[in-house]
Design a protein around this nucleic acid. Structure first.
Lengths: 218, 218
DNA sequence: GCATGTGAATTCATTCACAGCT
DNA sequence: AGCTGTGAATGAATTCACATGC
């Protein structure tokens, strides 16, 4: 069981890697592995064995010396740590390109993130059906979000509208936001905010291409 | 001009923040700012002034003591550093939910990433028109990608198909890949690879919610 | 006076290396 | 013998603090 005692301050990168381990374990289970060593797991994900062990050690002792980690069990531990061993109700605000892609995105549902509500402010979209969910008017967030016990809001509106929408969902009681708009949202510090900006990773690639290898020069 | 001399080893986080500065500057320009101090810029993006200055100092001296940085000029410098002061030809492989959202995603084009080719292996999709681009057969990558001078491939196929597609685009000469499939792709080390996994950020949020505040405990 | 640019100091993350268990 | 779990050592990123220049 994921002992939370002695939990000090888990870095974002560790949390990020937990997600990676989880996916690796999913694959390993399918391939029929019963146990996996930190060495193997690290190799698969281009990390170091020490890193894998250290990351896991923050949460407990899940392995067996001389043997490795039990695949199935470790998966469950990580699911519990990440909070994906349960369902979370999600509201999506903004049914543009990105929004509608997310509605159909299977990875979300698979990990227990269930889109329960969809909002937009465009009268032509309100009332339309997306994968069985009727699009609601953003004006109704304040009543619908608490009613549907929403924990997470995913914001996929244009940058210019994002802060207002953000304020709205927080007002409605949401404390976790995933923001796809390319702006820096201001939130009170008891609200968790993560940003996803697909252009940024492309920019990283163009940086790499532009600077090819060197990078050391003098 | 972004002097690349003395360029040592730029960390991923610095590159990431350059993208953030760039967006902030875009907004500042719109708001009519001529100059901006590291202090102001940091405040807007929830960073420290020293961080802003250090990041920029890796690439040159763009500011004026006592004054700050010239907004427009700094924007251009960063655009040059990131390689987004030019156009890059992009190929998209896989026209599922995510793929088709990206075709219409304006941020990409705005930053100079132009989708020139779209591939799929589904006969029903091949030949169809997405925003003016006819979907090609993945089997034709080897000829079409060099023909169209593609620099970056965006992979939006299911995880099970991703490695094969990845091998294919590299074979065709692509040296930069943005991968949306939830798998760890293996690439030679002269190929740049970035991963985008939208579920991971949601998992981070669920981690935060599950662990609410404490995080320190003893 | 004000804000940059940058070595030095500090904090944070990763890796080493080994004791301890199976 | 093999592999975990973890303090200690190293390395990297961030922040401090101040000399420098407008």
């Amino acid at each position: 069981m994921a002992t939370n005692r002695k939990l000090r301050k888990i870095s974002d990168s560790t949390i990020h890697r937990l997600s990676i381990y989880y996916r690796a374990l999913l694959a390993l289970e399918k391939e029929g592995y019963d146990t996996i060593s930190s060495k193997e797991l690290a190799k698969r994900e281009k990390l170091t064995p020490a890193q894998v062990r250290k990351d896991l050690s923050f949460f407990g002792s899940f392995g067996t010396r001389g043997l490795g980690y039990p695949v199935k069990q470790l998966m469950q531990e990580i699911a519990e740590i990440l909070g994906i061993n349960r369902a979370w109700n999600v509201a999506l605000i903004g049914v543009g390109n990105v929004g509608s892609a997310l509605v159909s995105y299977k990875e979300f549902a698979k990990q227990g993130f269930v889109i329960r509500l969809i909002f937009d402010n465009d009268q032509r979209k309100i009332g339309s059906n997306h994968k069985g969910i009727i699009v609601s008017d953003v004006a109704d967030m304040a009543s619908l979000i608490p009613e549907h016990n929403i924990s997470i809001a995913v914001i996929t509106v244009p940058g210019s509208a994002a802060q207002k929408v953000c304020d709205g969902v927080i007002e409605s009681g949401v404390r976790a936001i995933l923001n796809f708009a390319p702006v820096n949202l201001r939130v009170p510090n008891d609200v968790f905010l993560r940003n996803e900006n697909m252009a940024i990773e492309l920019e990283h690639l163009s940086f790499s291409l532009r600077n090819q290898e060197p990078m050391i020069a003098e």
